[in-house]
Amino acid sequence: MTRARPIIFGVVGVILLGALWEIYKAVGPATGVVIGGITVLPRTSDLAMPHLLTMWNRLGEPVLSQPGSPPLWQAVVAAAGFTLGIAAISWVIGVVVGMLLAVLMQRFRTAESALLPWIILSQTVPIIALAPLVSGFGSQLPNWQDWMSVVVIASYLAFFPVSVGALRGLESPEQAHIELMYSYGAGWWTTLLRLRLPASVPYLLSALRLAAASAVIGAVVAEVSIGLEGGVGRMMVEFASASSGDPGKPWAPIFGGIAIGLVAAGAVALLGQTLRKYRRTEVAS
């Protein structure tokens, strides 16, 4: 019951969004709503806002009109799988790097004051600026491939929430618990394993969720910036420009992107289930 609830809310939300789309399309002005020269709401033509059914039907039709072209949904699934793979690798790298940084900052006060500002600053660099740098550096290495540049950028986005969240988690145990470990003569490493890490799980889980979202968005955007073929990012750009007479088509990779996000969120939720016992909190006596 309680577990079904978020799913029910999610489904209802999607249905509402779809209904809103169709209602606005039916009653909205054909030229859209323009205030002071700025388009506030889109035009309602079939080209700008295709019917949901058009989008759905388009998925079943071939990608191109040439014979032998696979159905669109197959192409999208393949592209989404590709992007999901890149996002997953990036997530793992981001989590490992983020955790290592967090442990380092917890261990050495000076590391915290030296690293944390840079970590925060690092996230203000836009991907657009980063992409050419990364691929430029990469191209000087032997065997470097474009997908690796995408991984670098996506993990660059993913490590941030992990390092910050994990640091908060590692520093979350109460003084009393830390002193208890000290009274047992436990060293830093033992205290980390037996107290700090388990105590950080609730913080870590939300950080891992954020990192998953960052990895997916980072992968999609970096595919576009780097110009990597095969994923939904590139597909979105291609379909948007090449399909002025085919309004349903650009939506397919967008749905693919959403599906990746859902799979990623689901995977982290599953991880949270296996770490359930670490999410208990002690009630004050």
């Binding site: 009393a176 047992y184 388990p198 016992k277 909190t281 002690e282």
Partner: peptide, 21 residues
């Protein structure tokens, strides 16, 4: 304050110092 570790059962909490040593 009892200061028990929330993710450990009663038995595991009592066991902690023995485990550490």
């Amino acid at each position: 304050q009892a200061g028990l570790l929330a993710w450990r059962t009663v038995a595991q909490n009592i066991e902690l110092p023995l485990e550490l040593h």
